[in-house]
Design a protein around this nucleic acid. Structure first.
Lengths: 184, 184
DNA sequence: TGTTCATGATACATATATGTCTCATTTGAG
DNA sequence: CTCAAATGAGACATATATGTATCATGAACA
């Protein structure tokens, strides 16, 4: 065996996330250049553009699942689990955004994993409802959609350096559960 | 003068919004076909792809401004104005999404109009803070980002037929101001 | 009815992205 | 040091999108 640059594949995936998030229509040449790799090498790792896209999607799903699993590990309630999962997702929001808005979801395996995650979120929200965290009268789907979109909001402020990840997570959770009303 | 199809331009813009929202990398041929128009005719109205993109952006900005202006007309407070603007924006969210995520914002005029709208939103939020609607301690930028992202959430549920526009607007406003906490 | 003009279809040249291939170079293993 | 393997550079054919130009058609208008 002789692998000269075992990190090439990871470097390409990393560069692809950054490049495609900045410009979804970017060429593979742009990605390769950003990864500091020849275009031919990119094709050696990912035979076609769509193969690369699916790899990105799988990476995003796997990273999210791993991050959430680790974050939720010691949670004492479904509510606390949701809160920790929200905080853990914020740094990964850019890749989740990529996953949600790229037509990669036509890939069966990716679509299945994505739907499974959404289903799991709905289950946790229902469990949190039972714990009294959310109003039973509010549709679970709305809570889930708010949850996800507030994560994007949080990520935007963290990205722009206006808030720390912790501050953003706290604000997002407060918004979701208590809202932003004034004291008066 | 002799204009056989005065609606061509509007039809193209409409088709472009739909086509690009479904697939941002779609070709002008796709757009023309979706508009029921020849590709040559599309180029007669919009000389290049970027010209079309800027036209879409301007359309989105103008539509949003018009809708908000009309909705806010009789508002008795900044808070009520924000609430009405939120409801009025939900049906236009798809186009706002297009505007926010397409690199069209490099166009100076579009970027200026976009920034002006954001600035105006911040001003209204500050005014609503003064009315006691929002906690002064919460960054205005966070409220604005939550406001916009909850609009996307509302639009998603309306699009999927799970809520009416009114229901979605009410839920988004409640989430923003009071949160989704249960009664217990 | 005849004229005008937007239209659709089509051809065309150009540019760019893609995927394959070759080859000299470099890197790491033995 | 020697050798095998991966790499970068580049050539190459192909596909697709783009923008322009041409032309016959048909609808509106006088």
């Amino acid at each position: 065996m002789n692998k000269i640059r075992p990190g090439s594949r990871d470097a390409i995936i990393e560069a692809a996330f950054q490049t495609f998030n900045a410009r979804p229509g970017a060429s593979l040449g742009d990605v390769a250049a950003h990864a500091g790799v020849g275009r031919a090498t990119l094709h050696r790792h990912f035979s076609s553009r769509s193969v690369l896209m699916v790899a990105l999607a799988r990476t995003a799903v796997d990273e999210l699942n791993a991050a959430i699993e680790m974050a939720v590990a010691g949670a004492t309630s479904h509510t606390e689990g949701l809160r920790r999962a929200l905080a853990a997702t914020i740094p990964l929001a850019e890749r989740q955004w990529f996953l949600a808005h790229e037509p990669v979801l036509e890939d069966p395996a990716v679509a299945a994993a994505y739907q499974a995650d959404r289903k799991e979120l709905h289950n946790e929200i229902d469990a949190a409802k039972a714990e009294g965290t959310f109003d039973d009268a509010v549709p679970t789907r709305w809570i889930a959609e708010s949850y996800e979109n507030l994560i994007y909001a949080a990520w935007a402020l963290v990205r722009d350096g206006e808030l720390t990840a912790t501050q953003a997570a706290d604000l997002a959770w407060r918004t979701l559960t208590e809202g932003l009303a004034g004291a008066k």
